[in-house]
Design a protein around this nucleic acid. Sequence first.
DNA 1: CGGCAAACTTGACCCAGATCAAGGAATCGC
DNA 2: GCGATTCCTTGATCTGGGTCAAGTTTGCCG
Lengths: 240, 240
Amino acid sequence: MNALVLSNIKCGECPIRHRAVCSRCEGADLDILEKIKVYRSFKAGEQILWRGEAMDFVASVVHGVATLGKTLEDGRTQMVGLLLPSDFIGRPGRDRVEFDVVAASDVTLCCFERKPFENLLSVTPDLSKRLVEIALDELDAARDWMLLLGRKTAREKIATFIDMLIRRSSVEGLTAPHDALVLPLSREEIANYLGLTLETVSRQLSALKAQGILRFNDRRSFTVLSPDALHDITGNDCLH
Amino acid sequence: MNALVLSNIKCGECPIRHRAVCSRCEGADLDILEKIKVYRSFKAGEQILWRGEAMDFVASVVHGVATLGKTLEDGRTQMVGLLLPSDFIGRPGRDRVEFDVVAASDVTLCCFERKPFENLLSVTPDLSKRLVEIALDELDAARDWMLLLGRKTAREKIATFIDMLIRRSSVEGLTAPHDALVLPLSREEIANYLGLTLETVSRQLSALKAQGILRFNDRRSFTVLSPDALHDITGNDCLH
DNA sequence: CGGCAAACTTGACCCAGATCAAGGAATCGC
DNA sequence: GCGATTCCTTGATCTGGGTCAAGTTTGCCG
């Protein structure tokens, strides 16, 4: 991976400190992380990692949005993860990446060289515990997404996607002025995430607008006029 | 969960010892596991865990096949995981199950009470390391399945499923005499796993038979006559 | 500002796979 | 052995979302 190397900010002032992989670390452990971390930034559209490439770094997303994608031999692609600030990239114990990682917006990463990070991991229970939690949360999310991809209609997929944005926006800075939400992805990227085509995404968004459930300010930002109606469309059952 | 409690076998003689969550444990650690484990068995079709239920146990599959399933409010279901011998059920740190677990065949589990297991986990690096590996492997598998569910055709889905059976059968005892493979699931369950209907599954299996790629001995067992042709249909690119 | 490209919307048409329906074939209990 | 039930196959038809094809809007660069 090639990217601009930035000057670091202090971990104590880091906006993702409370949720990232380092959130449980304090004192000496944090000092070590502080020492081995390097900030890197990527422009929107830049590829952060290629599938199959050697993975020398693991990283946390500090700012921006990145996507994890898989591709079939004929070029069809499916997004298998959306990385928002505080999400973790990389997998200790594996030295190659299993998918492409692309910056969907301008992205800043907090990178750790893999080897030192792995060494630290084996002597820092706070770090490895948090990493297990993160991996298991991702697994839950992946399974929810399997239900969406395998069984939901286009309408339900879009509603679920926006519902998820609402849930994460509170924490992640996906908001615009006046409670408006920002779509972190283009229509094509949303389609890739939902297992649809960009035309279907566009039509379903238009339909939600026509029904008075959404109001668009511009192509990338909108207001949810009826969160309850939206939630009803997701198809999720009541249990959370 | 209600099930028959069986007499345990010794860990040293356990068929899944080399791959299960306990595979890295030796000596004293293994003795503790041996002491807190309880074998339970379930009949084909029995529900092992209900979604939302308190999860007092974690377990490894010793014999048989179980499924993880999610359901939408109107009853559509999607399988989100297939548990073969040595696979792990449960998530330390969570006290409720996120999905239904059902015995697809007669199943024997090696169960550990969750609390003692979690305690052991925090003092046994061999155990927690293996658990992280298992979680991350499952995450990889879930992401591969997202690609399948979101982008593959019915034909590619079936081919991928059988290709996966071939890969795991060597280890898992899914084989019948003369290199025949056993389908561990009914047509309906396969459909649930692949995001299809049972009719489509049946038609695609018939098509593979008609093309001379598969030969069926009976409904549940078959021989792959042309593994290469099958693999070509999966749509997976060359990189592994 | 104006010309162009990228991103999006909308319409017309089509097709893979769902749905609906009608048998077969294996398995179970008696 | 024989009904009955469950599981599977196959056919006919339908439809949601894909594909193809214009347009429209936005934003960018000279």
